[in-house]
Design a protein around this nucleic acid. Structure first.
Lengths: 211, 211
DNA sequence: CCTCAAAGTGTCATGGCATGACAACTGTCG
DNA sequence: CGACAGTTGTCATGCCATGACACTTTGAGG
């Protein structure tokens, strides 16, 4: 407890090496995923590609799904960050819509910690692999808890006793997910996640209770 | 292809035995789950309790999660069935709300193929076990596809080109799920799934775009 | 510089999930 | 009964995930 400031200590050689190993694992994993698919890639192959033991892989990532879904953490951070910058008098769904659209754009321009093609890769892998799909859903569920907290605070509600922030978070998450899935179907006519996400929230705003 | 009618052929001794084995596996599984929890129960234990091999277990269920989530299929069937009976001029979200509330009541009165206490067991297990939680989400995702089809047909829309039925299905699913989770928190003040589900849909109807 | 403690890693071992292959067994029907 | 299809048991295999323990590297301080 010598410092409360996040970056208070010197980086250190060790720290950097760990970071490099972690990144190397992610890189190797996505290279193999892109080449052979998620299911067909084993943890051992990923580890071998970076020349570490499988055991070490699991010291960096809790599961094989985890390594593919790291970027979702970035996504969440971006959502929480951008949401906090929205004007306080904006209706919550409007604020979420704007935020999500911004994040979607960032995903596609590679402004977060991953390239657009890697993003593409993940989207299609998730569609193909039930295991990854399940992992993604679980990841999303855990993130949704945090989102609920932030939404509740913004709305001035207590998430422990009020259902509303939970419903809002679930609805927004579902809309985003639906938008991502819509990208798989060319017939849908959406060429970007940004566009699809905006359309999804538009449905919530205008059509949900009138259809 | 001798018959297109569902129940065209005599039950047969073999058929019944299979059905009994299946039920026995479900019973044994829930007994063990209730006793030791989901994660701590192995497939081998379940199989041993029914005196079949582990291999046979996997001929009945695709995974350990599957055996715990069979009832969700009943749930879905009930939703689809009841939804088809709602008046056609009812707004879709209203129809879904009424349907979901009915199904929730059925869950709690044991009118579907499982007892209320088993339902309780599943709810609490899902909260404790990440693996089961993930499985449940995946199950729900697959069911959501069917629900989307039915919703689209009722609305007279093409799910292949129209985002709206997908959003509606995702929102309804999310609301139901949120209601189920709310039952874990006594502070929420919901004593039944029926009540929580109705409250969840009420939020969608009245508060979503005004908060 | 040398030593020491801590952190990271490799190796080995274990256990559980899931699936394929093949032989043995059991209803089903002629 | 006897052929036949469906079901099960027995291996065998592969992968994911985790615990235990020893070895090496890193960084701090005398």
């Amino acid at each position: 407890m010598t410092a409360t400031v996040p970056d208070a200590r010197p980086p250190g050689r060790r720290e950097r090496k760990k970071q490099r190993t972690r990144e190397a694992l992610v890189d190797a994993a996505f290279a193999l995923f892109a080449e052979k698919g998620f299911d067909a890639t084993t943890v051992e192959e990923i580890a071998d590609a970076v020349d570490v033991s499988s055991r070490t892989f699991f010291r960096y990532f809790a599961s094989k799904e985890d390594v593919a879904l790291t970027f979702q953490d970035e996504q969440l951070r971006a959502v929480l960050s951008l949401l906090s910058e929205r004007p306080a008098d904006e209706p919550i769904m409007t604020a979420l819509r704007r935020t999500v659209v911004q994040v979607a754009r960032a995903c596609e321009t590679g402004e977060l910690g991953f390239t657009p093609e890697r993003f593409e890769c993940l989207i299609s892998m998730t569609a193909d692999s039930p295991a990854l799909s399940a992992g993604s859903l679980e990841h999303a569920a855990r993130k949704q808890l945090l989102l609920t907290e932030v939404i509740a605070e913004r709305m001035g509600l207590d998430p422990a006793t009020d259902l509303r922030p939970h419903i809002v978070a679930a609805t927004a998450t579902g809309a985003f997910r639906t938008a991502a899935e819509a990208l798989h179907s060319p017939e849908m006519g959406y060429s970007s996640l940004t566009e699809a996400a905006d359309a999804a929230f538009a449905v919530l705003e205008h059509d949900l209770n009138t259809l």
